[in-house]
């Protein structure tokens, strides 16, 4: 594979993209999990699907859009979906989780309509659903790189505010933190990272890359920074291990990545349990 990496551009693209999303997906995932927003990632990934289907449809029907990268429209839909979720959460103050199934089913419904309007697509769509190693273009890589630099910079610069918002929202507001603006920035970052990650792991599996590494590290990490560190470590191991395995065994990369993440999670739960019983 090493020689393949040197030889083929598509492999380089896939690996570099994988390394990037192995960092940013769990990084945002930590905040998502501790704020109990895990399902938002699922809802937004399905909205992203609608955007991609819309883009593929335009490409098929109108010549002008033939060069359009579906990633951009996926991102636009994802960001739009995140804004809708926020709106719905204020409309249904006492049923905030309702926003998620509404957006999720809305996203799928719209996506399916676009797909049927185009009389079905080729294998392209399949690669968006489940991720693909060969589908990542150089243009995708650059877009994803720019997004990740933006996201990492924002998380570092706003770290203490994001921490406080996540830990104790009421206190954050009481001390005069602009909680609404901060949450808005956060949810847009989530939308962008989801759109960026779906190339490799696929729309249906994006949320797992944001939640599984966090679920594992939260079992034993001391403190928040350590939780972030282990989440990123587990994310990287899952992505790189998954890409290697899927290349050699000819498996779907998205599925392999997620299964490695699940394996790490099971190990973390088991080791923690063993440590707990031993200390007694």
């Amino acid at each position: 594979m090493i020689s393949g990496l040197l030889q083929y551009e598509f492999l380089q693209n896939a690996f570099l993209t994988g390394m990037i999303i192995g960092v940013i997906a769990p990084l945002l995932g930590v905040f998502i999990v501790v704020r109990r927003l895990s399902l938002i990632a699922d809802a937004l990934s399905h909205v992203t699907l609608a955007g991609i289907a819309a883009s593929l449809l335009l490409e098929k029907k109108f010549m002008i859009f033939s060069g359009l990268n579906p990633l951009y429209m996926g991102m636009a839909f994802s960001v739009g979906g995140s804004l809708f979720i926020e709106k719905l959460r204020t409309v249904y103050k006492h049923y905030q989780e309702l926003a998620i199934p509404i957006i999720l089913s809305g996203g799928i419904g719209l996506g399916v309509i676009f797909i049927s309007l185009a009389d079905g697509f080729n294998t392209d769509l399949f690669s968006y659903l489940f991720g693909s190693v060969s589908a990542v273009s150089r243009a995708d890589l650059w877009t994803i790189l720019i997004i990740s630099i933006l996201v990492i910079a924002l998380v570092v610069l706003l770290y203490k505010e994001l921490f406080l918002l996540s830990f104790d929202e009421e206190y954050a507001r009481a001390t005069g933190i602009a909680a609404k603006t901060l949450h808005f920035i956060f949810i847009i970052m989530v939308a962008l990272v989801i759109a960026a990650s779906m190339r490799i792991v696929g729309i249906l599996l994006v949320s797992s890359l944001m939640t599984l590494p966090v679920a594992a590290s939260i079992r034993f990490a001391k403190g928040f920074k350590q939780t972030i560190f282990f989440s990123i470590l587990f994310g990287e191991v899952s992505v790189l291990g998954g890409l290697f395995l899927s290349y050699y065994l000819d498996l779907a990369p998205g599925g392999t990545i997620v299964m490695i993440a699940v394996l790490i999670l099971v190990l973390a739960i088991w080791l923690k349990k063993r440590a707990a019983t031993r200390s007694i």
Partner: peptide
């Protein structure tokens, strides 16, 4: 009513968050 006891933060990190606005 405003705190998730499963939150992975150390005592130091929690107290440090009290400086957020002042910094």
């Amino acid at each position: 009513n405003s705190f998730n006891t499963g939150f992975p933060a150390t005592v130091f990190e929690v107290v440090a968050s009290g400086l957020t606005k002042k910094l």
